[in-house]
Design a protein around this nucleic acid. Sequence first.
RNA 1: GGCGGCGUAGCCAAGUGGCUAAGGCAGAGGUCUGCAAAACCUUUAUUCGGCGGUUCGAGUCCGCCCGCCGCCUCCA
Length: 514
Amino acid sequence: MPLKIYNTMGRRKEPFDPLVPGEVRMYACGPTVYDRAHIGHARAALTFDMMWRYLEYRGYKVIYVRNYTDVDDKIIKRAQELGRGWDSLAEEQIEVYRQDMGALGLRTPTHEPRATQHIQEMLTIIQVLIERGVAYCVDGDVYFEVRRCPDYGRLSHRSLEELRAGARVEVDHRKRDPLDFALWKSSKLGEPSWDSPWGPGRPGWHIECSAMSMKYLGETFDIHGGGADLIFPHHENEIAQSECATGKPFARYWVHNGFVNIHAEKMSKSLGNVLAVRDLLEHVTPGALKIFLLGTHYRAPLDFSEEAIGSAGRAEERLLNALSEIRRVQEVESPKANASQRDGPLLRRILHAEREFTDAMDDDLNTPRALAAMFDLVRDINISLKDAERGSDTSTIDSLGLAGDVVRSLGSVLGVLHEDWREKRVFSDTRVTTGAQVDASDYLEARKAIDEAFQSGKPLPEDRVRIIVERRRQCRDEQDWAGADSIRAWLAERGVIVEDTPRGARWHLTGPRA
RNA sequence: GGCGGCGUAGCCAAGUGGCUAAGGCAGAGGUCUGCAAAACCUUUAUUCGGCGGUUCGAGUCCGCCCGCCGCCUCCA
């Protein structure tokens, strides 16, 4: 079954067939770097990171370019407000963006070009457009003349008339058509400025993506994407200026991800409901955030809610638990069976899950279905784990190991399931009792120390907590259930949760991070 | 006004006209446990916003209606 991708251009799923067999060139519009990344940026970056990973999983060699818009009205404005240089603000925010995307486990694209480092390439394209008579210069500004482009509106499926009718832009009488857009803007005093044949100025917004995508990927390349809001005017204008300059088709597949709403409202500065990735990661694991985002198909609008992301976190736990259980069983029971004796039913389920996963992803990257395939396999794993635990069938151990590998591998295609993320959870600081003896004076001293720390709001001293937990274990060994229960309750009041396992008591801290 | 999207169980969310409508969360039973917790298993939509229509057959196609949203202006 071939991979199919929804192409905004034709508004339908199309079989994906790259220009050069086996190789994919893709470009995604990156952020304008004037503020921290929010959850919408995360969704866009994740969508293309996931696409990249899946294309590689499918065997393609991928060149992935994502730009930084590091000169723009918003950056200039923000820098002025902050009383600092626009370039240092952009530089700082690029670093912040990298950190945030890194925290989400997103890979760094093959190239991350910046607009300011490609001024010359932009000037070249603008020059060609003027020579070809599709762009004109007025008072140091250069505009693209929209009506010289016969296909204008092809991507957004709107005619020039329709666009003019709905236009809310103020009419600038220097332009030949209200829809003409700036390729080059003359700089005002104090604004960033580069020399050009039309005087000092700075690039218009759209030209940078044409310049950078074509520089790194060629005049025609496979995939171009971004948020759905970029369809018009950004991508429409990119197509117009690129194709008019080269006379060749620009991008072949246009991919757009849906928006993130916050409690059914659009996220916007004015509503004050912008959710920064950084702030979000204070409360949830990257894995939970990604499972939440991938739980909705990338083209559909996604509504953020605490409840939904909480349930994604518990779903992540479910996947992680299965993996650690496999590991535990493997430690206890060494595989005895050879390959031919492997557990048949589980093997079949593994193959089924892999097929289901790729079918789902082939169908326009249907990550909700792909996740479902993983959860199905996890259920089968859990059932087999029960069998293995009963000790009746050691032949399943081998297949369980394989099943775990498959879950990990599918998880890494979606970029979820980094097992080390689990350690970063606030509530996952677990320890197991050792069997050490605790005498009465140590116990009383530990209680006192814990109470002092608790009352002053400090983190509880872990070594003292351990002493209490060991003391409780002694009570249990002596079948002093009342004593054990009262210690458990005492600890719970101070934010320590104790859970008994076959290997001893496990405890973790809640509340303020230990 | 123009263009487009959405409405599926308590919540989130898949679903190429045709076997019993994925999956996750929550809920309910159960296993395990001294008790708990955690974990795991089982279970939870005669029905897909409403009304008509096409079809042997529709959540899936068509029409109308109701409700919600996005784009047309910077925006992922």
